[in-house]
Design a protein around this nucleic acid. Structure first.
Lengths: 110, 110
DNA sequence: CCGTATCCAAACCGATACTG
DNA sequence: CAGTATCGGTTTGGATACGG
């Protein structure tokens, strides 16, 4: 009985672990997930104010990435002025418990 | 009863989750941890050969970071020529199960 | 209100050569 | 064998202004 290897391919990008790190890494992604998770739903402006220091460039780009990766859902209401809401997908919600464990580990060990 | 927040401080660097991502992020860190974990102990040259594409610069720097962060232990034997062995610390070993969950999530969802 | 466009700075990463 | 030094490229992030 062998141990389960952390990564099968040392080469890299195919590893599930590497993939996760790629989509939640970077400077702002987890903060954004965090704010949406705490509030259930967040508008662009909410995120802009809540994620301290973020610029339009990075917020827009990060949200687009997260949407592409299936972690957040964007809903646009064509009112005047327009309103856009962001929520977590089920996929993202299933990731949260693991992130909480990681967070706990970080608090205890770093 | 409130939900546990993913991050307490939106500002950032104090969050346990952010800290973990900072120390295992980057291009090579998890590969290195992976190789050491799979082999129990690894020499510099083993890592050099196993982590496909890594250069001396990055390997040496990554190992130094990991040692500073308390994830790997460096042992030097002053033979001729010198031999250096890297192992995971207990701290790092306690992180592995969480990383495996993350990896599993990545494989199922990405 | 919710973004995009452009341009610039900094961080990160890599190739090559060299050392104890 | 196990690294360090230097330099240059690439990628990432930020400031500011503007557009639907």
């Amino acid at each position: 009985m062998r141990k389960e290897p952390l990564c099968e391919e040392i080469a890299g990008e195919g590893c599930g672990l590497k993939k996760v790190l790629n989509i939640i890494g970077g400077k702002w992604k987890i903060m954004i997930l965090c704010v949406i998770d705490n509030n259930e739903v967040a508008r662009y402006g909410d995120l802009r104010r809540s994620v301290y220091g973020i610029t339009n460039t990075m917020l827009a780009q990060s949200l687009k990435d997260l949407e592409t990766d299936g972690l957040v859902c964007r809903t646009q209401y064509d009112e005047m002025p327009v309103r856009v809401e962001y929520t977590l997908t089920e996929k993202a919600k299933s990731l949260i418990p693991i992130l909480l464990q990681l967070k706990k580990w970080g608090e205890e060990n770093l």
